[in-house]
Design a protein around this nucleic acid. Structure first.
Lengths: 340, 340
DNA sequence: GAAGAAAGATAGAACGATCTACCGAAGGAT
DNA sequence: ATCCTTCGGTAGATCGTTCTATCTTTCTTC
C-alpha cells in the first residue's frame, strides 16, 4: 500500500531542498516563479497533503478546534455547531466534536483526550456537575477556551442567552393572557442557566402578584416531559399554564396533555424554550422563546478567534436575547379554569 | 500563563532521563519500583499529559479516529455515534466527529482536514454525490476506512442494513393488511441504499400482483415529508399505504395527513424506517422498520479495529437486519378505499 | 568595475515523543 | 577472581515540519 508522501518525497521529485518545498506550500519566503511551479507540480503528482501535527509541533500553532457538547443529538445544538463550523472552517480551522452526554466523568476523559491530541482551542458546554478539578485541568494546559450556554465563573470567555429576561417575557405573556397559576417545568440540577430562568419566572410571579411559584423538575426529553406533566397536574390541578425549560420538555408536555384528552393552548397553555425545528411543526404548533442558533454559533466562533489572537485580554461575556414566538399552545384561561 | 509540561520537564523534576519517564508513563521496559514511583509523583505534580501528536509522529501509531457523517442532528445517527464512541474509547481511541451535511465539496474539505491533522482510522457515511476523486484521495493516504450505511464498492469495509429484505417485510405487511396501491416515499438521489430499498418494495409489488409501483421523492426532513405527502395524494389519490425511506419523512407524512383532517393508520397507512425515539412517541405511534443503532455502532467499531490490526485482509461487508415494529400508523384498507 | 543590496535557495537545529543500541552495576556460576 | 547474565537505566537518532542563519548569485548604483 502507498506510503504517505512527505516534504522530502516532494523535494526529491522536484529536485529542490525541503525548506524550499515548505515555503512554496505555505506561500511564505522568496521563491522564484519557476521553482514554485516545479514544486507545485511535484506535490500535485504525489497527492501531497502536509502533516498538520508535525507542523503544529514545530510552529506551536494549532488549527484544530474541539467542540465539547452535552448532547449532540439535540437539534438546537446541531444548528449551533453548523454555525460554528462554517465560520471557523473559513478561517482554516478544523472543528471536531465530542459528546459528553452530560456525564462529568466522560467529559473529563474527553477533555483529556483533546489535550493529549492537541487542540488549539476549545468550545465547551460544561456538563451539569463538572467538578472544580476539570476546570483546573484545562487551565494548566493554557488552551483558549470559550464556554457556551453554561458559564463557569470568570475563568473563560462566555457566550450564552439572557435567560432571566427571556423567562420574564414568557411568564408575562402568560400573565397577560389572564393566567394566575403558572408553573415552571423542566431541568433537574440547579445549574446557573436554570437558576437564571427560574429567577425571571419568579420575578414576574411576584411582581404581578400571581400564585405561588411552582418549580417542577424533569429531564430534557419528550418522554420525561410527558410523564412530568402528568405528575404535575396531579399535584397541582389549579395550574393553567406552564413555562418550560426547553422545547423538548414542552413538546413532551403537549403530548401528555393530548394523551389525557386535553388540548394544549385551550385547556392548558405551554410555552417552550429554544424554538427547535419541531416546535413549528408540532400540532398544535408550540409557542416558545426563540433563540437563533446560527447567531449563537457565529458569536461563539468570533469570541474564540479573538481569544486565540489575544490570549491575555480579560475574559468577556456575550449574551443574545430570546424572542417570543406566539403560536398555538398559549391562549386565555379556560372557562372552567381557576381565574381565582 | 503556565507552559505545557513535557517529558523533559518531568524528567528534571524526577531526576531521571527522558526515556525513563517515557517508559514509566507507557508501562513498558524494565523500571524499578522506586524510580517508577518517583516519576509518577513528578508527573502528577506537574499535571503532565503526553503529547499524542508527537508520539504518533514517532511511533506511527495514531489513536485518533474520525467519524465523517452526513447529518449529525439525525437522532438515529447520534445513537450510532454513541455506540461507536463507547467501544472505541474503551480501546483508548478518541473519536471526533464531522458533519458534511451531505455536501460533497464540504465532505472533501473535511476529509482532507482529517488527513492533514492525522487520523488513524475513518468511519464514513459518504455524501450522496461523492465523486471518484474523493475516494482516490483517501486511498492514496492509506487510512483504514469503514463505510457506513452507504457502501462504496469493494474499496472499503462496510457496515450497513439488509435494505431490500427490510422493505420486502414492510411492503408485505401492508399487503397482508389488504392494501393494493402502495407508494414508496422519500429520498431524492438514487443512492445504492435507496435503490436496494426500492428493489425490495418493487419485488413484493410484483410478486403479489399489486398496483404499479409509485416512487415519490422527498428529502429527509419532517417538513419535506409533509409537503411530499400532499403532492403525492394529489397525483395518486388511489394510494392507501406508503412505505417510507426514513422515519423523519414518515412522521412528516403523518403530520401532513393530520393537517388534511385524516388519521394515519385508518385513512392511510404509513410505515417508517429506522425507529428513531420520536417514532414511538408520536401520536399516532409510528409503525416502522427498526434497526438497532447501538448494534450498528458496535459493529462499526469492531470492523474498524479489525482493519487497523490487519490492514491487508480482504474487505468485508457486515449487514444487520431490520425488524418490523407494528404500532398505530398501519391498519386495514379504509372502507371507502380502493380495494380494487 | 567595485561595493553594497537584494533575491533565491539551503543547512542545520528544534518541536516532543519513541526506538534501538548500549552501558554500568549487581548477582550467579565456575 | 573471572566471566557471563540479567537488571535498570541512558545516549542519540528519528518522525515531518518550521525556524533561524547563512550562503551564493545577480542586480544596482556611483
Amino acid at each position: 500500500m502507498a506510503v504517505r508522501p512527505t516534504l522530502e518525497t516532494v523535494a526529491q521529485e522536484a529536485g529542490v531542498s525541503i525548506p524550499t518545498v515548505s515555503q512554496v506550500i505555505r506561500g511564505t519566503g522568496r521563491i522564484s516563479e519557476k521553482t514554485r511551479e516545479k514544486v507545485l507540480k511535484a506535490a500535485k503528482k504525489l497527492h501531497y497533503i502536509p502533516d498538520g501535527r508535525a507542523a503544529a509541533m514545530r510552529s506551536g500553532e494549532n488549527r484544530e478546534i474541539g467542540f465539547v457538547i452535552n448532547q449532540i443529538a439535540n437539534p438546537f445544538n446541531a444548528e449551533v455547531m453548523s454555525g460554528v463550523v462554517e465560520l471557523l472552517e473559513a478561517e482554516g480551522y478544523l472543528v471536531s466534536i465530542l459528546d459528553t452526554g452530560d456525564d462529568a466523568a466522560r467529559q473529563e476523559r474527553h477533555l483529556e483526550a483533546f489535550i493529549r491530541n492537541g487542540r488549539g482551542g476549545l468550545l465547551w458546554v460544561p456538563a451539569q456537575d463538572t467538578p472544580e478539578r476539570t476546570f483546573d485541568l484545562l487551565r494548566v494546559q493554557a488552551i483558549p477556551t470559550v464556554t457556551f450556554m453554561r458559564p463557569a465563573g470568570e475563568r473563560y470567555d462566555h457566550v450564552g442567552v439572557r435567560n432571566a429576561v427571556a423567562t420574564e417575557t414568557a411568564t408575562s405573556h402568560l400573565a397577560d393572557l389572564g393566567h394566575h397559576h403558572i408553573a415552571y417545568l423542566g431541568g433537574t440540577v440547579m445549574t446557573l442557566v436554570r437558576q437564571r430562568r427560574i429567577l425571571g419566572y419568579e420575578r414576574v410571579m411576584k411582581a404581578r402578584n400571581l400564585g405561588a411559584p411552582i418549580v417542577w423538575p424533569s429531564i430534557d426529553t419528550k418522554l420525561a416531559g410527558l410523564e412530568a406533566l402528568r405528575d404535575l397536574r396531579q399535584s397541582h390541578p389549579e395550574v393553567t399554564a406552564i413555562v418550560c425549560n426547553g422545547d423538548m420538555v414542552a413538546l413532551g408536555a403537549c403530548l401528555g396533555l393530548q394523551k389525557a384528552g386535553l388540548v394544549p393552548g385551550r385547556d392548558l397553555s405551554v410555552i417552550g424554550f429554544d424554538d427547535i425545528a419541531d416546535a413549528a411543526l408540532a400540532t398544535p404548533a408550540l409557542t416558545t422563546m426563540a433563540i437563533s442558533p446560527q447567531k449563537l454559533g457565529r458569536k461563539l466562533a468570533q469570541v474564540l478567534l479573538a481569544r486565540i489572537r489575544e490570549p491575555d485580554m480579560p475574559t468577556t461575556v456575550s449574551e443574545v436575547s430570546a424572542r417570543l414566538v406566539i403560536r398555538d399552545t398559549t391562549g386565555p384561561v379556560p372557562a372552567g379554569g381557576t381565574g381565582d
